[in-house]
Computed example of a mutant assay.
Amino acid sequence: MTERILSTALDADAAARVTSLRAPMTHDEMAAAVARRGSLFTLETWLVQAKAYVGSILGVGLLSPLLYLMAMGVGLGVVVDRASGGGLGVPYLHFVAPALLLSTAMQAATEENTFTIMGGFKWRETYYAPQVTPITPEQIAGGHVLGVTLRYLVTCIIYWVVLAVFGAIPHVVTGLLLIPIGVLCASSVGLPIMAWSSTITQDKGQFALLGRFVIMPMMLFAGTYFPLETLPIYLQPIGWVSPLWHAVVLGRAVTIGTPVPAGMVVVHVGYMVALCLVGWFLARRHYRRRLVG
C-alpha cells in the first residue's frame, strides 16, 4: 500500500515537472525578445568595452577635481579673494566649485561622443555587427546614450564628493542637485555632438577643432571662472548660447544660494532639455542612415 502511494506521488511529481516545462523559443520569439531589449544589449556591450578604461575614468574623475581645486579654488582663490575684497559675496572656492564640476561633465560628454562614435562606425566598426540581429540603429544609439549617461553620473558623483570633502559646497542638501544638473548639462552637450559625429566619415582633425574652437570658448565664456556680466556685452552672447552657462547658473543657485527667478529656472532647464531632444532626434536619424542607408 505504501509503495503504491509513493509510486503515485512520484508519477504526479514527474507529470507536474513535464507540464511545467516551456517549449524552446522559436526563432521569431527569440528575435522579438532581442528587439525588445536592443538598447540594453547595446549598453551591455558598451559596459564591456568600458572595462578597458574604467581605471582611467575613476582616476581622472578623482584627480581632476583635486588638481583643479588646488589650482583654481585654493591657489587662485586666495589671490581673487584678497584682490576683490569679497566682491563676489562668497569665497572664490565656493564660486568656482560648481562650474568646475559642470565643465568636467561637459568635457566627458565631448570625449564620449567624438572618437567613440568614430570608432563604432569606422575604426572598430562595432556598430555593424548588431545589424545582423533584430537590434535597430535607434537602439544602438540608445544603448550608447545609456552608457555615456552612466559615465556622466559616475563622474559627477566623484567630483561632488571631492568638492564636499573640501568644503566647497556650503549648501550640501540642495547641493546634491548639482549632480543631476551636471548630467543634464553633459547630455545637452553630448547629444548634439553625437549627432554631428555620426555624420563624419573621415577624421580630418574635426574633433580637435571642436575642442579648441567650440568647447574651450564655451568653458571660458560661460561664467565658469568669473561672472559673465563682467565681459563686454558683445561677448556675453557666447555664454548665453552655451548650455554650460545655463547649468552654471543653476549650479550656483543650489550650492551657494545665488538667486534665480523661477521663470529663468524654466528657461535654463528648458534650453538644455531642448538641446537634448534635438540632438537625440538627429542622432537616431543619422545612425539609421549610416547603418541601413
Rank of each mutant, 00 (worst) to 15 (best):
L10M: 14
S20K: 11
A23T: 04
M25L: 10
T26M: 05
H27K: 10
A33G: 06
A33D: 11
R36N: 04
E44C: 12
W46Q: 11
S64R: 08
L66A: 07
L67M: 15
L67Q: 10
Y68N: 06
M70W: 14
M70V: 08
L76H: 03
L76T: 01
G77V: 00
V78Y: 07
P91N: 12
F95W: 12
P98V: 06
A99W: 14
T104A: 09
E111T: 02
N113Q: 03
I117D: 07
M118Y: 11
G119F: 09
F121M: 05
W123V: 01
E125L: 15
T126Y: 13
A129N: 06
A129I: 07
T136S: 12
T136V: 12
E138W: 13
Q139E: 09
L146M: 13
G147R: 11
G147H: 10
Y159C: 02
W160A: 10
V161S: 01
V161L: 10
V161K: 05
V162K: 10
V162R: 13
A164N: 01
A164V: 03
F166S: 00
A168E: 14
I169P: 01
V173Q: 11
T174N: 13
G182V: 07
G182W: 12
L184K: 02
S187I: 11
P192D: 03
M194G: 02
W196T: 01
S197T: 06
T199Q: 14
Q206R: 04
F213R: 08
M216C: 05
P217G: 02
P217R: 03
M219S: 00
L220K: 06
F221I: 12
L228T: 01
L228C: 07
I233A: 14
I233M: 08
V241K: 12
W245D: 00
H246M: 06
V248I: 15
T258M: 15
P261Y: 15
G263K: 09
C276G: 04
R285M: 09
H286Y: 07
Y287E: 03
R289Y: 03
R289D: 04
L291T: 03
